[in-house]
Design a protein around this nucleic acid. Sequence first.
DNA 1: ACATTTTCATTCGTACACAAGTGATAACCT
DNA 2: AGGTTATCACTTGTGTACGAATGAAAATGT
Lengths: 142, 142
Amino acid sequence: MSPETTEGTYQVQGQIGFVLRKANQRHVAIFATHIADLTPPQFAALAKLRDVGETSQNQLGGLIAMDAATVKGVIDRLAARGLVQLAKHEVDKRRLMVKLTDEGHRLIVELLPRARTITEETLSPLSAKDAETLLQLLTKIS
Amino acid sequence: MSPETTEGTYQVQGQIGFVLRKANQRHVAIFATHIADLTPPQFAALAKLRDVGETSQNQLGGLIAMDAATVKGVIDRLAARGLVQLAKHEVDKRRLMVKLTDEGHRLIVELLPRARTITEETLSPLSAKDAETLLQLLTKIS
DNA sequence: ACATTTTCATTCGTACACAAGTGATAACCT
DNA sequence: AGGTTATCACTTGTGTACGAATGAAAATGT
């Protein structure tokens, strides 16, 4: 029986929460070596906007799993850098529409190949089959 | 061939970084329902201190994968609540030693069973075998 | 012994992440 | 229509997370 499952023992290092945090740390570190001037959430926002075109802030948050407060900060910083453009929805005055600027579009297209490298490097300790398994299992607990 | 691995396609939702973030989000949410007055990092710090007794702040950070700046914030908040006790190392004047107070010890012992529940609930979408596999694969990429 | 390098802790700045509360607007419902 | 509820965005407050810079103290090398 492994130490993690032994009755009466509790090792933080073996818990799912701890390992998730560490794996994420390593991924973010790898990300930063390949894409220095964008954070993973910022990249996710730009990549998603490229997929869907224009959306509202909240809707975008739903697509990339960020709550309203978080998405606002991310979008504000992207807007300040001229990568996205904001506009009030003409009919529904509550909504704030977001879309890529030309520069934002150019940037995300340029960075997409590097994103693939990041994924590869993060999964490099695993075989292709194990990587696929990991993705599936993680998706199930998400 | 799955969409994620198709040449020329890039879906943020299928990337390891995105799925890691989402899995972690769900875990933290589950954690909060069972242990409301402690965050996962705070819990990790207390649990580790219970294992090792007294350590320095930096050393503790190494054990639970937090850098110096992060660990300081966590420990400060625990100290403010009287759960840990701080003291300068007598010989090495650089080091700040940390240990559980009686209250901190009582609390972490009380919460340990709930931590097991949290782990179980987080992994509940998986079979026992798959859960074990996930732990192993995550550890490999950590 | 003494200069160099490490280590430890702290501080500052930036960036998520989310709960809770607010105000404006839209949708709903009888 | 008019009141209720829901949605959207924003704000505030707390808590990680980490890079970079700083200062004190210890370890190291010659």
